[in-house]
Simulated assay, not measured.
Amino acid sequence: MNQTTRILAIRHGETAWNVDTRIQGQLDIPLNATGRWQAEQLGRAIADEGLDAVYTSDLARARETAEAVGRGAGLPLVLDTGLRERAFGVFQGLTFAEIEAQWPEAAVRWRKRDPSFGPDGGEVLTEFYQRCVDTAARIAAAHPGQSIALVAHGGVMDCLYRAATRVDLQAPRSWLLGNASINRLLWSPEGFSLVGWSDTQHLDGAVARDETNDASGAGRVGHAA
């Protein structure tokens, strides 16, 4: 029996807070007009992928994106809170600059990807990583030999990339986390492997924003969680 699960890992479409570089975390921010357009393009692009299930974070920006995926695939959505973005506590709702001004020492630990750091009221980086990887593995294990979509957030995508490529949690990020991008992984009982990353051909040159204000780090500086 084929135990390998094919995964399309998808970050949600753009939100107004992505544009403003404002930390969303687990606050329930909807897609903006661009994000809704991106979701529709995405849904059409993967309509023929032969998906067997569509799982999504329950937060609005991911759920709205997943609804377009589900329509394209003719499948219902399965909501899973384990796919939520990192809880960012007191950082949520603030811009990078505001965080640095209010909590300079905490901002340094965050930007340096301190594995033991979590903002007041938020998740520690190592705990967030383990949650993401465990959730994705649990879901994939339920679909051996099948193809599934996981619609989630920038921080979740970053964790899955690291798990698939064995990149250390503290290593600076050099890969994209574009809104509504398609990222392809395989899962087997041995773990995750990378097939392809950050496919945005379906967006036809539209801006695919790469903010980790979704809320796990500081852009391409390499601090997404």
Rank of each mutant, 00 (worst) to 15 (best):
135 T>G: 10
70 G>I: 06
108 V>F: 05
46 I>T: 11
205 G>W: 06
181 S>D: 08
121 G>V: 11
167 V>D: 14
130 Q>I: 02
13 G>L: 00
147 S>I: 00
171 A>L: 09
175 W>N: 04
1 M>Q: 09
191 G>L: 09
62 A>P: 07
73 A>V: 10
183 N>H: 07
89 G>M: 03
78 V>Q: 10
48 D>E: 15
72 G>R: 04
4 T>S: 14
130 Q>Y: 09
106 A>D: 15
64 E>H: 02
134 D>F: 01
32 N>H: 05
33 A>W: 01
188 S>K: 01
167 V>M: 15
201 Q>Y: 11
213 N>Y: 05
11 R>S: 05
145 G>C: 04
153 H>K: 07
54 V>G: 03
70 G>Q: 08
225 A>N: 10
149 A>S: 13
173 R>K: 08
63 R>P: 02
163 A>M: 13
131 R>L: 12
154 G>C: 13
180 A>G: 08
118 G>R: 05
11 R>G: 02
189 P>M: 04
170 Q>R: 09
204 D>T: 02
180 A>K: 01
3 Q>C: 05
191 G>I: 07
66 A>Q: 03
171 A>S: 14
96 F>N: 03
88 F>G: 15
62 A>N: 08
68 A>T: 09
50 G>Y: 03
145 G>Y: 04
85 E>L: 02
100 E>I: 05
95 T>G: 06
44 R>E: 14
173 R>E: 07
133 V>S: 06
41 Q>M: 14
25 G>W: 04
17 W>E: 11
42 L>F: 11
49 E>A: 15
140 A>N: 00
65 T>K: 01
68 A>V: 06
59 L>V: 07
190 E>Q: 15
31 L>C: 12
212 T>Y: 00
182 I>A: 06
159 C>Y: 02
224 A>I: 00
47 A>P: 11
107 A>Q: 04
204 D>F: 10
106 A>K: 02
46 I>D: 10
159 C>Q: 12
142 A>Q: 13
116 S>C: 08
206 A>N: 08
221 V>E: 15
183 N>R: 04
184 R>Q: 12
92 Q>I: 04
28 D>A: 05
120 D>N: 10
75 L>M: 02
16 A>H: 04
78 V>W: 00
20 D>M: 14
70 G>A: 12
88 F>N: 10
46 I>K: 07
71 R>G: 00
180 A>P: 06
223 H>N: 13
225 A>E: 04
141 A>N: 10
217 G>D: 12
117 F>C: 07
108 V>L: 15
12 H>K: 07
47 A>G: 11
95 T>L: 09
139 I>Q: 03
138 R>H: 14
1 M>C: 05
133 V>G: 05
72 G>C: 07
155 G>L: 13
11 R>I: 05
179 N>H: 12
214 D>R: 00
120 D>I: 11
11 R>K: 07
216 S>E: 09
225 A>K: 00
48 D>L: 11
48 D>K: 11
